[in-house]
């Protein structure tokens, strides 16, 4: 089992400049047996995302824990993927590996990782319909939660953009 810093070093070797920032945060829980849990936050370049996931999956199969969260700023949307690594090893050794990258608003596109983690498909479909980010190479492009007859351009989870006026 690799330490978060070792994972970062390996990843840095592989993608180089694609890795923009990283941080390890520690969390403790338990009463008589206090366990330490290291959370690794990685910020990537959009172009390096697919390669990095493929690389990390080779270290140990990734588990996607939560649908992608997003932070909207003036010119970009940050998409956050909460992955887990070393799931199912027991003994409180799972490591959260939170990968994020910016998508400029002028070019709302990203690439699907369903070829590596097939279980992520519903989350990518949700991201596509809720945030309006076009996910390339998605095997199934239909809507999942919103109705099929919903107006084009109405993006429920975006802060400011909405196809329907407030009147």
């Amino acid at each position: 089992m690799l330490h978060p810093e070792e994972i970062v070093n390996k990843l840095k070797e592989y993608i180089g400049d694609g890795l923009l920032e990283w941080e390890v945060r520690t969390r403790f829980d338990g009463v008589t047996n206090i366990r330490e849990q290291k959370h690794l936050y990685i910020k990537l370049n959009r172009g390096a995302f697919h390669r990095s996931v493929a690389f990390l999956y080779k270290i140990s199969p990734l588990h996607i824990s939560c649908p992608m969260a997003s932070i909207e700023s003036e010119e970009a949307i940050e998409l956050i993927y909460p992955f887990m690594i070393y799931s199912g090893h027991g003994d409180q050794t799972e490591q959260p590996l939170i990968v994020s990258y910016d998508i400029p608003k002028s070019d709302l596109r990203t690439v699907s990782v369903t070829d590596i983690i097939p279980g992520i498909i519903i989350m990518e479909r949700e991201t596509q319909e809720m945030l309006g980010i076009e996910v390339e190479n998605l095997p199934d492009e239909r809507r999942i939660f919103t109705p099929d007859n919903m107006e084009e351009g109405f993006l429920p989870l975006r802060d400011k953009v909405s196809g329907i006026s407030e009147e």
């Binding site: 829980d29 338990g30 047996n33 330490e36 070393y86 799931s87 199912g88």
Partner: peptide
């Protein structure tokens, strides 16, 4: 797998 609540005990 993950330390929550009293489970690590």
């Amino acid at each position: 797998d993950y330390a929550v609540n009293a489970y690590p005990d």
